[in-house]
């Protein structure tokens, strides 16, 4: 499979995503510079990495959405291509209107970097197909604006549609106020679009995909993408259980 990692000025998890996809999952990966208006190759998925695109000076993701490459991302998503936005990438997808809602400053008004737990609320997406419903994953967050907000109607709709994919929880899977690190509505940590091919999450799966880093829970998310692509392009599928065994 071949994946594109978008590089905006100020992206800083681009190399981490590249490393995880290429050296941990063994996929082909290209960096795509933000000034490109179209993709030159065929990709099985696009990754919008974390960081501080354009310094996040106006509002997180607010300037990046106008970047030339977002035309290519938008077209790719509209054709059903898999797009995952991680952290700043999630913020950009919200600003670009590819996902519903918006991000507010963390309730504490501080940057928070720590491991949190998230519960898989919907395993029937290309990004969670290697998980089971109710799985609790330990994945780190590192952001100042991850407090997901949407109006009640939108929240009701995305819950109803199964678009809420990951929720912050405690280590036993309990979804509570105490386990919500940033004040997100409904403890939302990750959502997808109605068509399930565009997904945004605040926690960083690429940071916990190798045993030497002490945690491989994030690999389930990235492997899900690869597994989905393999099926839909006729390759062999990587099953969740294989990964569990490998761990």
């Amino acid at each position: 499979m071949r994946y594109a990692v978008i590089v905006f000025p100020g992206s800083n998890c681009d190399h981490d995503c590249y490393h995880a996809m290429k050296h941990v999952l063994g996929q082909e990966v290209d960096f795509i510079w933000h000034k490109e208006e179209s993709f030159q190759k065929k990709y099985d998925g696009v990754i919008i990495p974390g960081g501080f695109s354009y310094g996040d000076y106006l509002r997180t993701g607010a300037i990046a959405r106008f970047s030339p490459v977002m035309k290519a991302v938008d077209g790719f998503a509209k054709c059903g291509g898999l797009v995952i936005g991680i952290c700043n990438g999630f913020q950009i997808l919200l600003e670009a209107g590819l996902l519903p809602g918006a991000m507010l400053r963390n309730e504490s008004l501080k940057f928070i970097c720590k491991d949190v737990y998230v519960k898989v609320e919907n395993e029937q997406t290309p990004f969670t197909r290697c998980c089971n419903r109710g799985d609790v994953l330990r994945i780190p967050i590192a952001h100042a604006e991850g407090n997901y907000f949407a109006d009640d109607e939108t929240l009701a709709r995305i819950e109803e549609n199964g678009q809420v994919v990951l929720k912050y929880c405690d280590k036993d899977g309990e979804i509570s106020q105490e386990s919500n690190p940033n004040g997100s509505a409904h403890n939302i940590a990750g959502i997808c679009n109605e068509a399930r091919n565009v997904f945004g999450m605040m926690p960083h799966p690429e940071r916990c995909s190798e045993a030497i880093l002490g945690n491989t829970d994030g690999k389930n998310i990235l492997a899900s993408m690869v597994s989905h692509s393999s099926i839909f392009t006729g390759g062999c599928s990587i099953r969740y259980t294989d990964y569990k065994q490998a761990q």
Binding site: N12, C113, K114, A142, E206, R207
Partner: peptide
């Protein structure tokens, strides 16, 4: 931790 949680201490995925 009040201090170092405000620092991204994992980016670059090298922190062991």
């Amino acid at each position: 931790s009040w201090i170092y949680r405000q620092y991204d201490h994992m980016v670059r995925t090298n922190t062991v």
